[in-house]
Simulated assay, not measured.
Amino acid sequence: MRIYIISKKMFIIVSFILLITIIFLSFYVENSIDTFFMEELEEPIRNGDANMNKMAFTCNVDWGNEEIPKILDILEEKNIKITFFVTGRWALKNPELLKFIYSKGHEIGNHAYSHKMHSKISEKENYDQIKKTEDAIMNALGIKTKYFAPPSGDFNQTTLKVAKNLGYKTILWSVDTVDWRKGSSKEIIIARVMKKPHKGAILLMHPKPATVEALPFLIDKIKEEDIEIGRISDLL
């Protein structure tokens, strides 16, 4: 039987190679597991079927009370029902206005509690932000919301996991009015919206004066395309 003697230099080289191999395999396995679980989560919904002659309008609400009745009047005049995503803190402060929106046949969605960036907060904070809003809406309307719109469209895999575990579909948009940006006039908002595809689209707006001015024109022009405007639940 032969006995092989490994030099100290060779031992160090072999040990180094083994160490690098172990680190690589650990990293690969960990990322493979993460990828597996990430694939189990539903991606946010940005639009419906592009072959459908339907489009959903959404209005995110954390402020703008003075503009909401004007928006509701326009929608009633045009016989349109849309989805309002409200924050929990807004719902707590404005239960009567929330009830009024809902009484008009509009859909209510969850816009988290205090408009935080959800990719920057912990899993527990993600849970609290969504659940507290769910409870505030439940207390005001007696309904369980099923759609969640993360504030500023900001999310990560933790956000998606928490939302899914609470029974929500996460909603984003494909047509953005960007009406919150300074200098967003009626004409600019109309131009932003009209250059985008509308079939199966989800439009995002906020209760801003320029949006109120642009809304009747947008509804009429989109209807001329033979597209039915409705709520998220009408589109999906």
Rank of each mutant, 00 (worst) to 15 (best):
I5R: 03
I6N: 02
M10I: 06
F11R: 07
L19K: 00
I20R: 00
I23W: 01
V29P: 03
E30K: 15
E30H: 12
E39T: 15
R46P: 04
R46F: 11
G48C: 01
A50G: 14
N51A: 10
M52I: 15
K54R: 11
D62M: 08
E66R: 12
E67P: 10
D73A: 11
E76S: 14
E77L: 02
L92Q: 15
P95G: 03
P95K: 02
E96R: 01
L98W: 11
L98Y: 09
F100V: 08
K104F: 08
A112M: 03
S114M: 08
K116D: 15
S119L: 07
I121P: 00
S122P: 04
K124M: 13
N126A: 03
Y127I: 14
Y127V: 14
K132F: 10
I137E: 13
I137S: 05
L141A: 12
A149C: 11
P151R: 01
G153A: 04
G153P: 06
Q157M: 15
T158H: 00
K161A: 12
V162G: 00
K164L: 12
N165S: 10
Y168W: 09
D179T: 04
R181K: 13
K182R: 08
K186V: 08
M194P: 04
K196E: 10
H198D: 03
P207T: 15
P209M: 10
A210H: 09
L215F: 07
D220I: 01
I222W: 01
E224Q: 05
I227H: 00
